[in-house]
Simulated scan of single mutants.
Amino acid sequence: MTEKRNIILVGPMGSGKTTIGRQLSKQLNMDFFDSDYEIEKQTGVDISWIFDLEGENGFRKREKKIINKLTKKQGIILATGGGTIKLKEIRNRLSICGVVIYLKTSIETQLSRTNFNNKRPLLQINSREILQKLSNERNPMYKEIADITIHTDKQKTKTVTYKVIELLKKKYYLF
């Protein structure tokens, strides 16, 4: 098996990818990237604006370019957007360039974590229904590419971060 040096965080919105990624970055002294933030930085506008102007397809094209660019790096932690895994090509890319960690969470937790965030274009109306639909569609794809799955419900950031590090040590002999 090829040695995997990057840590890739996948999961639904509100699962803690960015928060856990930042903590891992500090604990492991690795560079952290958030694909959504990188898209906003590159375009100079927020994601909801891109969705409004270009639709989801336009956003996914931008996301694919960013993912391809970031996954060429070595020794990074990458938090992906919730829908990043929609394309098989991107799922394959993520699988080969790092250890993929699926941060799994319930719809209830997602609702509580995203309730006050108006930057989530897919949650502007009927949040519960949308999250259920996205869960049914995407959870099998997260599971498909996951090397490690960690449930984040009712867990503190430090606890999840510690679990990730311990599993990486045990399973991949990293750190």
Rank of each mutant, 00 (worst) to 15 (best):
V164F: 06
T114G: 07
L123E: 01
G83P: 08
P121R: 06
S127N: 09
K169Y: 08
F33M: 06
E89I: 04
R113H: 02
S15Y: 05
E38R: 12
E54D: 00
N68Q: 00
D46R: 15
E137F: 14
Y162A: 15
V45P: 11
I101K: 05
F116C: 13
D153W: 08
P121K: 05
L167I: 08
F33C: 02
Y142C: 02
I77T: 01
D46Y: 15
T2C: 11
E89K: 10
S25K: 06
F32D: 04
T161P: 03
R128K: 09
L24K: 04
I85G: 01
K133E: 15
N29M: 12
K41H: 07
K61Y: 10
S112Q: 15
K61R: 13
P12K: 05
E108P: 10
P12L: 07
N115W: 12
T84Y: 07
K170N: 07
I107H: 10
Q23S: 14
K143N: 11
E56F: 00
K154S: 14
L70A: 06
Q110M: 13
N6A: 04
L123K: 01
T2H: 12
D147L: 01
T109R: 11
G82S: 01
E144I: 03
K170C: 04
K72H: 00
F33G: 03
L70V: 03
Q27E: 12
R5M: 09
I125H: 11
K64A: 09
I107F: 10
V100L: 05
I145W: 02
I50S: 06
M141E: 11
Q23Y: 13
E54N: 00
R128Y: 05
E89P: 09
S35Q: 09
I145C: 09
K41E: 10
Y142H: 07
V100H: 03
R62Q: 08
G98S: 05
E54Y: 00
E89L: 05
L122T: 03
I66G: 02
E40R: 14
G44P: 11
I85Q: 05
E3D: 13
L122F: 06
G98M: 03
G83H: 01
K86D: 07
Q42E: 15
T19D: 02
Y37H: 14
Q132M: 15
C97M: 10
L28H: 02
L131K: 06
G82C: 02
I47A: 05
N57V: 00
T43H: 14
I39F: 00
Q132E: 15
Y37L: 14
K119Y: 09
Q23M: 13
I165F: 03
L78D: 03
P12N: 09
E56M: 02
G14L: 08
L168Y: 05
K73G: 04
Q155S: 14
G16T: 01
I77F: 05
N126D: 08
N117F: 00
F51R: 03
S25N: 03
N6T: 04
N118F: 11
V99A: 04
N115F: 14
N126R: 08
R62L: 10
L94A: 01
M30K: 10
R22D: 08
I39L: 05
E40P: 10
I66L: 06
D46C: 15
T152R: 07
L87A: 12
Q110G: 12
E108V: 11
R128F: 07
Q23V: 10
R5D: 11
D153E: 09
G11Y: 10
K61P: 10
K169C: 08
L111P: 09
I39C: 02
S135Y: 15
